[in-house]
């Protein structure tokens, strides 16, 4: 554990809780992509199956349970409790275009051919692109609520902080996992456009709207 990893985790946690609180307080999931949330639930489920097979630390296990619970809680709110507020017309990204290639890639580029390792690798690849339906939705509607922008910023920052964590771990522990590093860089690059808009608009008190 180092400061970059911890900051990344806290940023990730903040993002997930921010989204839950936003939906709960406004009693609405307008502007949120249910498809991205489905992908994140798949990501957490396939990655955290190791809760049953290996134990690293109380911190890790606790966070995994929180992420899983919050993720399924979000799905419940979106697709059951506040379903009428879900804007499915604008959530039209075809997620099979992300699910299938990630799955194929996880069979081609993987460290070890075991079920758990392939599922873990799949979760890494899928996570890298899971935000695309949400970004697509923002581009289709041309705007995002400020709280949604904060959510996206925290979620994007998490992987960017993890990149610093990997650089740090490379120098201090000789740790180098190219799969997670490349995927993490791709994931962060996808947010760059949004980061730019967030810094130039939202931080100056303006609503995020596209020209």
């Amino acid at each position: 554990m180092n400061i970059f990893r911890l900051s990344g985790d806290l940023s990730h946690l903040l993002a997930i809780l921010l989204l839950l609180v936003k939906i709960w307080k406004t009693r609405s999931c307008a502007g949120i992509s249910g498809k991205s949330q489905i992908l994140f639930a798949i990501v957490y489920t396939t990655r955290y199956l190791d809760l049953f097979t290996s134990f690293v630390s109380v911190y890790n296990s606790f966070m995994k349970v929180v992420f899983l619970t919050a993720s399924y809680g979000t799905l419940y709110l979106m697709f059951f409790k506040f379903k009428p507020t879900y804007d499915h017309n604008h959530d039209s990204f075809r997620i099979l275009y992300l699910i299938i290639p990630s799955l194929v890639l996880s069979f081609i580029i993987v460290h070890v051919y075991t079920v758990m390792e392939i599922l873990w690798t799949y979760s890494i690849y899928l996570e890298a692109v899971a935000i695309m339906p949400q970004l697509f939705m923002v581009s289709r509607t041309g705007e995002a609520e400020t709280i949604t922008s904060h959510y996206l910023f925290a979620l994007g920052s998490y992987r960017a902080l993890y990149i610093l964590n990997w650089i740090y771990r490379y120098y201090t522990e000789d740790f180098l996992d190219m799969i997670v590093i490349i995927a993490g860089i791709v994931q962060t690059i996808l947010y760059c456009d949004f980061f730019y808009l967030y810094i130039t608009k939202v931080l100056k008190g303006k609503r995020l709207s596209l020209p």
Binding site: H12, D50, T53, H111, E117, W120
Partner: peptide
Amino acid sequence: PVTDAEHDEL
């Protein structure tokens, strides 16, 4: 090689 236990990240 990486084993499950070595994925000490979230």
